[in-house]
Simulated assay, not measured.
Amino acid sequence: MKIEQLDDKTVRILLTAEDMEHLDLTYDEMDYSNNITKRAVYLILQQIKAQTSLMLDEHRLFIEAFPDSNGGCILYLNLIEKNTGPRPQRERYSFDTPMVFGFETLDILTAVCNRLVREFSHLIVKTELYLYEREYRLLLYTYCKMEERILHLLREYGTYLGKGSVLCAFTKEHARPLLTENAIETIVQYLD
């Protein structure tokens, strides 16, 4: 089992096929209402507490599981603040709110898409591509709230324009859609 703290609220857990067997888990039968899954999650949480500085007891947990090609599983654990009373209203970001990036040329966009497919395809839910004036805008939906390594990579090639439903809506309304599904995979397939 490999535990990696991605940021102050997100942990990625890589379970090998051997880990899954040891925990008596299969991806297809994972269900939090199942006692075997509950026991496995409890054991994994104990490992996370031992290996990170996260205060798991002070948060609610959101866990997503994805199958891995080696017969194992990739888990993403996100800490969610417990409701402690009224808070000021602010825009909420969820997994269906993309990060928006701008790129000056098609060559730069192709280069970054190659790296995204090669290094981070397991974290990417969806990508869309638009043309706004003379800038390519990539909308990137990820499994975790803010994958810092993806953000760092994309900033090497282009400009991080922000995240949120307002920016997303502006882009979709004012920019010309080029690829509304599987943008990075399509670019790599046809332009590389």
Rank of each mutant, 00 (worst) to 15 (best):
L6H: 00
D7C: 07
D7G: 08
K9Q: 13
R12M: 14
I13H: 10
L14V: 06
D19R: 06
M20C: 08
L23P: 08
D24N: 14
D24V: 13
D24I: 12
L25I: 04
D28M: 10
E29F: 12
D31V: 09
S33H: 01
N34Y: 04
I36R: 15
T37Y: 01
R39K: 15
L45F: 06
Q51I: 02
Q51F: 03
L54V: 07
L54I: 03
F62I: 11
A65T: 05
A65H: 06
G72W: 03
L75F: 00
I80E: 14
N83W: 07
R87Q: 15
R87W: 08
E91R: 14
P98E: 02
G102A: 15
I108M: 06
T110D: 13
A111I: 04
V112S: 11
N114G: 15
N114S: 14
L116A: 12
L116E: 12
F120G: 03
I124N: 03
E128I: 04
L129R: 04
Y130H: 10
R134C: 08
E135Y: 07
E135F: 09
E135A: 10
Y136F: 15
L138E: 07
L139A: 07
T142F: 06
C144N: 02
C144M: 03
R149T: 13
E156L: 04
V166M: 12
L167A: 05
F170L: 15
T171L: 05
P177I: 05
P177L: 08
E185M: 13
